[in-house]
Design a protein around this nucleic acid. Structure first.
Lengths: 187, 187, 187, 187
DNA sequence: TATGAATGAGTATTCATTCAT
DNA sequence: CATGAATGAATACTCATTCAT
């Protein structure tokens, strides 16, 4: 573990608990067990971290793209998509809460825009394989369907994060799946 | 306009732009055109505002409950529900972005818990009329269906807020509606 | 009880607990159950209170002067002096702690100087009857003896105030008395 | 001079003039010629200073204990005790005024309690050598005598501090001494 | 006699950041 | 690679005081 990633890990832990604005460099370096000066040896600024995390998040989607590119029947692919997005919820809820706040905050939006410069292409790839998926599933407007799916997954994620204990995640997963794979009772 | 609500309005404007933690009392009082001290004449603390806004938000749902209680065919009620939630997006996107961040942040969760003390009952009422709606629509598990609907609406809202300009809100609305009212081509 | 004295009493209670600088006008008026503005209706400023209390304190000594002026044997008078100073300790320790701090603080010294303008004469009277007392007791330097007595009483008071529970006040009283009335074992 | 002790010295100067509550961190750091932030680099809080000073004060008594432990005739020891306590008055009156206020204020009492945790033992030692002294001098109740002596010294100190210019310190010293060493006219 | 609204200046404390070593 | 010393600017919050009513 380089000192660098030690600090990054600490930062993610702290941000997950107290948010970006609510966390200070002192909080982070205390959590990492290093001096504040060392933080500035590795990173340009506090905002710098946000860009790094935004990039990291975008990279998270690489395996999703590869999974959707694979030569598999669309039913398998849609199940893969749903599982990919919703399975990380249970293990990484603090981190995901942080990422969700990032999307909504001005700080985050700025960071994401900077990060996007390098990842625009990748993002378009993702959208493209999603469209391919819904086209293969027989939808007449695969782009809209991809957007709808993304929104629904986002909503389920968000509602889960608001109260993980009470949320019927598995049932929601199944409910969503039956919309695309006709093997269950939809009512 | 009492001094009190002048400050509250200013606070909402500022929070919407810069978030709760990102906004200072100085920002708020400057926006309101009053002294910092006057803020503390009316409010106990910065956190106090959060509780007030959380209560306000909970009150926003009163007309929704009344609308769903009305003696109307379920098709009309489901359309009312969807419209109620998604129509405010266009006019109040800044405010809603703030509320969404509130749900996700620790500050917000604390405030909501305090506010909830007075509104628990009302919230249960909302869930109850939603279940009635989906029961009337013929769903065998109306509670789960209500949760799914809520998640989907939340997801559409969130995705819209991330990029209002590009988001096909009307199409998503229609797509969602056809799930419950069989008059359109679902594919 | 006029509103005026209601506030003064409240102020003394608050000052006794938190000191002069540690108490705010808000603390005082809250304790008195009136508005801050009413405070300024009756008093010119916070410092004003200090002068008032300093005057009050100086007035406290009037009965002491009268008691020492009375035509009684010096043994009775010295006992009266000791009792007068030390008896109030038990009932009024909070108030006395406040007065003692007053003597030591710059705020207090200023206030006392202002108050003294009106009471200089009275104070000289007190010193004069004390000197008469020690002269009657046969001391060759009654002024010095008065100063010594005053210092000792002050010291006993102070030490008592530092820890009333553990301090052997009655024994100290007796010990002091035997210095002037030869009826006890001095060792 | 480390930055640390530079600030501590400045704090003592400021506290001596304006008291603890009457002094601000800004006052202290201005006096020390450093930034406010540096204060918090070295100290946890304003109250922290009080604990530090309380500890310092307790340490001041170490040489007194050693002096009283020494194998010397009790007459010499009692003279040492009186000199030790009263001699610092002339050089350090501002500092001592501050310490005396400390004893009386709630802030100070809290600080002293915290400081005492480490010095309880030392304090008991002091009391013990004082008792030994008065026992050697032939008093039947040395504990009470020690308390009486302490009170008298405290009182002389306090009265001196209230008006150093007019107070006959040397005469009081002699007066007190004759109580224990029979070589002078007590009247 | 009584108050609520209002404020400028100040309070302790924290922040992100820099720099010499 | 690593730190302690240092700071200007900001933070939430409080203060004594005034004034219109």
């Amino acid at each position: 573990m380089t000192g660098n990633s030690n600090i990054l890990d600490a930062a993610m832990r702290v941000f997950s608990k107290k948010g970006f604005r609510g966390s200070s460099i002192a909080d982070i370096t205390k959590e990492a067990g290093v001096s504040k000066a060392l933080f500035y040896h590795y990173f340009k600024s506090k905002e710098d971290l946000l860009v790094i995390f935004a990039k990291k998040r975008l990279e998270d989607f690489s395996p999703l793209i590869r999974g959707l590119q694979a030569d598999r029947p669309p039913e398998e692919r849609v199940r893969f998509l749903i599982d990919f997005v919703l399975n990380e919820l249970e293990n990484e809820s603090a981190k995901l809460r942080f990422y969700n706040m990032l999307y909504l905050s001005e700080d985050g939006v700025t960071a994401i825009e900077i990060a996007m410069n390098n990842y625009q292409e990748q993002f378009e790839q993702l959208f493209s394989v999603e469209k391919k998926l819904f086209s293969d599933l027989g939808f007449s407007d695969p782009a809209m369907e991809a957007t709808f799916m993304r929104s629904t997954l986002q909503g389920i994620s968000l509602e889960y994060l608001l109260g993980p204990a009470d949320y019927p995640l598995e049932i929601m997963k199944k409910k969503l799946l039956t919309r695309y794979i006709s093997n269950g009772d939809s009512k």
